[in-house]
Simulated assay, not measured.
Amino acid sequence: MTETVGLLGYGRFGRALSGLFSDAGIPHRVHDPKLDEVPPKLQAGSLADLASRSTVLVLAMPVTAMHDALTSLRPLLLPTQLVIDVGSVKVSPVQALATVLGRDIPWVGTHPLFGPASLARGDARRTVVCPNSLHPEATQRARALFERLGCEVTEMTPEAHDALMARTHVLTFFLAHGLVKAGVGKGIPFAPPSFQPVARLEEYARTEVPHLFNVVQSENPYAREARAELLAALTELHQGLEASAKAVRSPTAPPALLDVRQRIDQVDRELVSLLARRARLVRDAARVKSEHGLPFPDAEREAAMLDTRRAWAEHDGLHVGSIDEVFHAVLRLCRDTVNRPDEEP
């Protein structure tokens, strides 16, 4: 099938994608609020004009703008057309696609893992496509389109994608901005070769699309846990180094202390068994939600659940702030179990 693409958005990534379409000989038109920045031969003067000329509509815009754009586009679409997004996160865009287009208009979420800088370097191109049960044929059309652009295509769920990006893309942005904020490398006369990866991260933060940092950090439902996990690991590393510098030999523990430690170990073993049981239940819940098109994770449910756990902690005389940290870690553990279906909890 020969596709004709309608590109909504002509920012940095939209321009790069348009260039790839041109190089691949894929006919396309572009609509953007700043239409004067679009080459005249590619211009579509309105959404209606763009929709009428296209078999595939590509949303190349900030994630926060997608729902409104889809709502405006919906009355112009036919069941033979395909709508895809190219956002850096997938859970929230896929929810918007499902809500606005549903079963009537084919859609699929995608994430091209490249941008203007990586294209300029000649890096390998990869795109993630997130199949959905409402429109299985949409996956094949999206795959064929990106393969024509020279991409290796990987299929995964929106949740698995965002969990993976939280521990790669999210942390890369987070570290890069942290390095810039800390002034790392600023004003130094020279640096050893080991500093080069750090310098590249710093440069990455200075040259990225301005809105992308906030989108990647705020729209990915796993970002907060990933940042917290990294900060906890760095804090533990720092404290370990501090302790090593001041280390003194501890005296042999008295028998009464050894007895208490053994009982603590037994309680911890029971806690691990309970966590495994909880993870299995969450996996069952995720399966049911997937069958019924319900969101996973559910932010409102988690917030209400945490409120209840705080009340329990307060009743039992536990520190409420600490119980928050504990249950955020429990939620992360259970999500990781759901996103690694080949492992037994």
Rank of each mutant, 00 (worst) to 15 (best):
R309C: 06
D68K: 13
K181N: 04
Q43P: 08
G115V: 11
L281W: 01
D268H: 13
S22N: 09
P210C: 12
H328M: 10
T172R: 06
S18R: 05
A311T: 13
A233K: 09
S290L: 07
A44E: 01
A253Y: 05
E203T: 09
G109M: 08
R167G: 03
F21L: 15
A160Q: 09
K181T: 14
P189K: 15
Q217A: 01
G178E: 05
E236M: 02
Q266N: 08
N339H: 11
E325H: 05
F213T: 14
R12I: 13
G187Q: 08
F21S: 05
D324L: 09
D104H: 13
Y10S: 01
Y204M: 15
P210K: 13
E203C: 03
A233Q: 13
F190Q: 13
A96I: 05
G122K: 10
R249A: 14
A24C: 12
H211Q: 13
D259C: 03
P158L: 00
R283T: 14
F21I: 06
G9L: 02
L82V: 03
R103P: 00
F190R: 14
H328E: 13
E302D: 08
R227F: 05
L78S: 15
L274F: 00
A223D: 05
H161R: 06
L47R: 01
E343P: 00
E219T: 12
S250A: 15
M156S: 02
A44G: 04
S92K: 10
A142G: 02
S46W: 02
D49N: 07
S273G: 11
V108G: 02
H169C: 06
L237F: 01
P255H: 08
G185S: 07
T139L: 11
H292G: 03
R340T: 15
C334N: 11
E302M: 13
G122A: 09
G178N: 05
L17C: 06
S218Q: 08
D23V: 01
V272L: 09
A286H: 03
R280T: 11
A313L: 10
L234V: 15
L70N: 07
R206P: 01
V170H: 02
D336Y: 11
Q140K: 10
R143E: 11
E137L: 12
G178C: 06
